[in-house]
Amino acid sequence: MGLKEVRIHGRGGQGAVTSAQILAIAASKDGKFTQSFPTFGVERSGAPVEAYTRISEEFINRRQQVYNPGYVIVLDTSLIGVIDVTKGISEDGLIIANSTKTPEELGLKGAKAYSIDITKIALDIMGKPFVNIAALGAFASLTGETSIDSLKKAVEERMGKLAELNNKALDKVFALAEDLK
């Protein structure tokens, strides 16, 4: 069916929901149908948050929650151990983690995993640990499900004044991920 499902793990306030939405906007700019939604509920700063994006060549009918994502992005690896970030991931799937540690050190199993120190790049470029959008650079590079150009356009649309620096970080993470391939 060609339906791709992405799950983004973060903590409340980290922007997981925004990055899932930006991913959906970007994929639609590539001419694909999308859906994006969070785990609905009471928002609380610091609490574990999950957000999802579906990408497909056709209109997406299903409205159930995402149970078997092809891709998982972990914005905050302190969540590993608190919740199972690899739950339901498909065997041919891919995990992207924001960490200084290797995927082995993080204990990421069940699918191919990459780790990139996105926090450092965000701090270098923005002076703040805004990792949610920068992480999508790794997604674009490693999965090819969306183009970096569409991502940057989506960031511009959505982030206003914050777009420029975010896109800089996005480019940097994209380049780093290219080297990991």
Binding site: Q21, Q35, S36, F37, P38, R63
Partner: peptide, 12 residues
């Protein structure tokens, strides 16, 4: 329209 399940979903 279904609350959250549709109202809070981003789509084209």
């Amino acid at each position: 329209l279904d609350g959250f399940s549709l109202s809070h979903v981003y789509e084209p």
